[in-house]
C-alpha cells in the first residue's frame, strides 16, 4: 500500500509543483485540470505513434506546454482574467481531447496503449517516484537559491519591486505558466502511462487536488511533497476500500472532490490568523 501510495503521489506532486510556480508568481492556476487531461491523452497518442513510453511522456509534457502557452497568451499578452482563462483552459481540454480522439481513433472514449507498460523499477518502486521527489528538491533550490527563483517569488509578492528594478514581472509569470504546463502535462502522462490507457475524465480532479495541496503544503515544495503523499494515501485507501464496501462506483467518483473540499475548508479555518498577518 505504501508503494501504491508513493506511485499515486507522483502525478499530484508534479502537478502541484507546476501550480506552485504560478502561485508563487501570483497566478492561482485553475487550469491545471485541463493541462493534466491533455497531457494524459497526448502521452498515449505519442507512445502509440512512436512505440516508446519515453516519447509518450515527451508528447504529454509538450501538449501541456502547448495548452499553457495559449493560457499564458490570454492572461499575459491579452490581460484576460486569470480565473476565467483558467476555466477556458479546462473547457478547451475537455473539448479538444475527444475531438482529436475522434479524428485519430474514431472514438471519443477509451484509448488503449499499444505499447506494453514496462515501468522501470528501483527497489520495487516505479522510477517516477524518486524522479518526482528530486523534482521537488530541485524546485526548492530553484525558488530559494537562484536569482531567477527569487525574482519569480517577487513577481507574486510585489511585482512593483521588479518594475522598480527594470525587470518585467510578465516575463517571470509567463515562464511560470509555461513550466506549469510542462509539469501538469507530465503529471497527466504519468497517470495515463501507468494505467496503460486513456479514459475520459482520466484527470479525475487531480488538478484541483494539486491546487489545494499547494496551500496545504504552505506554498513550499517540501510541504507539497508531504501534502501530495497524504492525498495519495487517501486515494489508495479509498481504492482498497472499494473492494470491501458496497459503496457504488459512481458515488466514489465524487469522493476525491469531497476530501479536497474538506481539506481546503479545514486548512482555511486553521490558517486564518496566519493569513491575516500576511
Amino acid at each position: 500500500m505504501i508503494v501504491n501510495s508513493l506511485e499515486l503521489m507522483v502525478p499530484i506532486l508534479i502537478a502541484a509543483l507546476g501550480g506552485l510556480l504560478t502561485e508563487r508568481a501570483g497566478v492561482l492556476n485553475i487550469g491545471l485540470e485541463g493541462l493534466i487531461l491533455v497531457g494524459a491523452f497526448a502521452a498515449i497518442v505519442g507512445a502509440n505513434l512512436t512505440g516508446s513510453l519515453l516519447m509518450g511522456a515527451v508528447f504529454g509534457t509538450l501538449a501541456g506546454l502547448a495548452l499553457s502557452a495559449l493560457y499564458s497568451v490570454a492572461c499575459i499578452e491579452l490581460r484576460s482574467n486569470i480565473f476565467v482563462a483558467g476555466l477556458a483552459t479546462n473547457l478547451l481540454a475537455a473539448g479538444i481531447v475527444p475531438t482529436v480522439s475522434a479524428l485519430l481513433y474514431g472514438t471519443r472514449g477509451v484509448v488503449r496503449l499499444a505499447v506494453p507498460v514496462s515501468a522501470q523499477r528501483i527497489a520495487g518502486v516505479s522510477v517516477m517516484v524518486p524522479l518526482a521527489v528530486i523534482l521537488a528538491a530541485a524546485l526548492h533550490v530553484f525558488l530559494f537559491e537562484t536569482p531567477y527563483g527569487i525574482r519569480l517569488r517577487a513577481t507574486g509578492g510585489n511585482p512593483q519591486a521588479l518594475v522598480a528594478r527594470a525587470l518585467s514581472p510578465d516575463r517571470y509569470r509567463r515562464f511560470a505558466m509555461l513550466c506549469s504546463g510542462l509539469f501538469a502535462g507530465g503529471a497527466g502522462a504519468a497517470v495515463a502511462l501507468r494505467l496503460g490507457v486513456y479514459l475520459p475524465n482520466i484527470s479525475a480532479g487531480r488538478g484541483w487536488i494539486a491546487l489545494v495541496v499547494i496551500f496545504l503544503g504552505m506554498r513550499h515544495p517540501l510541504g507539497i511533497l508531504a501534502g501530495a503523499f497524504v492525498f495519495a494515501v487517501f486515494e489508495s485507501f479509498a481504492a482498497a476500500a472499494q473492494g470491501f464496501t458496497e459503496v457504488p462506483g459512481t458515488l466514489l467518483l465524487g469522493l476525491p472532490y469531497l476530501i479536497t473540499l474538506a481539506a481546503m475548508v479545514v486548512y482555511s479555518a486553521l490558517g486564518r490568523h496566519a493569513r491575516i498577518e500576511r
Binding site: L70, Y71, A74, L78, R79, S80, N81, V84, A85, L87, A88, T89, L91, L92, A94, G95, I96, P98, T99, A102, L103, R108
Partner: peptide
Amino acid sequence: TEFTFELGTVIQAVILLLVTASFVVS
C-alpha cells in the same frame, strides 16, 4: 460531422479565453 458534441465546449472555451481580454492597452 463526426464530433460536434464537443464543439459546444470548444466554443465556450474560446469565448472564455478572450472575453475578458483587453485588446486595447489600458
